[in-house]
Nucleic acid binder design. Structure first.
Lengths: 343, 343
DNA sequence: TTAATGTCTTTTATCGTGAAAAAACAGTTT
DNA sequence: AAACTGTTTTTTCACGATAAAAGACATTAA
């Protein structure tokens, strides 16, 4: 069960211990891009919480300055940026400090247009769980993560440079994706991104999407979803025309399209299940760039046919178009899974 | 929207605040059975972890003493009770202390049969998450928990007498049941055990179980599941005969039966989804005792018909029997949901 | 030499704590 | 009076610390 010739370059797998069950257990380490990432030091006291909410909202707030000569009220800004007034006031305070606005009670006059260096760096705006998820998924997909391996909370936390609580909470949330499993009072076990996983995932996906699609087609004329569908159709047409240069924008469009369809099921379990699919496809797209252009070109065409079928309200056509697209989506996913031996 | 005459005894709902959206948000409080439960005090330092694993294993270990005159090796005991050797040794130490056994290295001789007071009290053997779950579900089902209410981690933690971390982790785990939802950077919202919930749940259940049932019927002759099915059939027959007195044992049998069928799908998402159903039915059975005997009597008969259909391998019969049972299960669930008004 | 026991180390489960962010309250302005 | 700003309180998020439990290593008995 040795890995390829590069096995020596990733030295920190624990020695496998023989188990009663035939599964050999190893540990899942995260290989960090360039040495150990050391977050937050030299603060003396353990820093409790990063202010990424503020930083992210600040960056988004800067973009508002381009458009107007004065900002709206604090509560309005709050809804606009999706944060509380407390955070809005922190943002305004900094905007005043850096000379972007003049702030006096109700008047918030824009003094200058933001420069690139006014923005907080991207990586400081990420949620902790996003950081953890990325590290974890990189490790999972980069290879070297064999089914049956142990996942060690403490080790993960240390390697990513975060507290154990955050890692635990991440793993609990992540467990619903079916890739890991907890042993009571003990470690997590990696079930792995295997062929079996992909097949089980797509089985459910097909079941759910076929049902959602026929529910969609049965929706009344005056339902707002038809307008949404028209908009998405336009976007697909546009993308199809410029596919040579914009093929990497498909992933995002794909998700919006399928979510729209799933929402027609009016079933929270179906809608929520799309999170699993979206997660898998998100990382899969990032990782497997082979024939990306061709794959996406085909998919866009399939989507357009699927949309046409929906608009026809002909359940037979919908079923056929949906099946066809899901089949090729499954094949793309399956071919991207390395693996040769699986019982 | 006042609750019944006992409303005054549960005084601590927060005043509802009017919201932009028409949903009135209230807070979900837990009404504890007899005043506030104060766990762990007077220890000075915050106690980190209860030793319920030890206590539960100890209790189960006591039952072994009835059967033999001497206990097996430590590792063997470990696998038997499902705990580590460390815990086994703590157990043995106490058994020696209380004069239950004589322990010297490999020899562990039973000196006397355990008395009732040798056992740790039941409530000390519960997991923290079980405690939290019970409190939470009681509140949910006892009424007074309206959709749209806020769930406050801190408040829950204080009322149950546990740390916030445990409550957070519970809520994250619980969220996959579709009854609550998190607002980013803010509180949880109760979606409620509504008619809509029950319908969405049963829709998926029916989809999954029909598929599992036909997969089951298609299993080869020599598959071990047929033996399992035979055993379950016997248990059903036995229960049917003594239904007058043992009707409350059905719930557990029901779960085992359906899990066996779902396992035939060989799909982790289908198998895992049964957790949602089991959870709902578990609390539903506890709460709704109306016509319990009659309901269970009918269900046992339906199960037996279902089992016969499976054994016939006739897919048409399987489908019909499965549909029939699921339909009456859905009706039972639906009639137990109070609620009059739902948009 | 295998499988147990005895001992030591590591990991998990849980708490209290503190900063970030939200929410509530109180006072102003229009 | 409605909507805003200013201020205070509460809650969420994340950390380090610690006892329980698991796991690894060392030693001994069969």
């Amino acid at each position: 069960m040795r890995r390829g010739p590069d096995a020596g370059t990733r030295p920190d797998f624990r020695k496998a211990i023989p188990l009663p069950g035939s599964l050999r257990q190893k540990h899942l380490h995260i290989a960090l891009q360039a040495g150990r990432r050391k977050r937050r030091r030299a603060t003396g006291q353990g820093m409790s919480k990063s202010n990424n909410v503020y930083k992210d909202a600040y960056n988004r707030g800067l973009r508002l300055l381009d458009e107007t000569k004065s900002l709206p009220s604090e509560p309005e800004l709050g809804t606009l940026l999706g944060v509380s007034r407390t955070t809005i006031r922190t943002i305004l305070a900094r905007m005043e400090e850096t000379g972007l606005i003049a702030w006096n009670k109700r008047s918030k006059t824009v003094l200058r247009v933001p420069r690139p260096d006014d923005f907080f760096p991207e990586e400081e705006t990420d949620t902790l769980s996003q950081i953890i998820e990325r590290s974890f998924m990189r490790r999972l997909l980069v290879g070297g993560a064999e089914p049956g391996m142990q996942i060690n909370e403490l080790e993960l936390a240390r390697e990513i440079g975060v507290g154990t609580t955050s890692v635990r909470e991440f793993l609990i949330r992540f467990s619903r994706f079916g890739l890991i499993e907890k042993r009571r009072n003990s470690h997590w076990v990696l079930k792995g991104f295997t062929r079996a996983f992909a097949l089980e995932l797509t089985e459910i996906r097909e079941m759910f999407e076929l049902r959602s699609a026929s529910a969609f087609a049965a929706l009344p004329e005056d339902s707002p979803v038809w307008a949404d569908l028209d908009l998405l159709e336009d976007e697909h047409r546009l993308l199809a025309r410029e596919i040579a240069t914009r093929f990497n924008e498909f992933s995002e469009l794909d998700e919006r399209f399928h979510r729209l369809i799933h929402r027609a099921s009016h079933n929270r379990f179906i809608v929520d299940f799309y999170d699993v699919i979206a997660m898998i496809f998100h990382y899969h797209y990032q990782w497997n760039k082979a024939q990306e252009r061709e794959r996406n070109e085909v998919a866009v065409a399939e989507h357009l046919a699927y949309i046409a079928a929906l608009k026809s309200r002909d359940l037979g056509k919908v079923d056929a178009a949906c099946r066809k697209h899901l089949k090729s989506a499954r094949n793309t996913l399956l071919t991207s899974i390395p693996e040769g031996q699986q019982p």
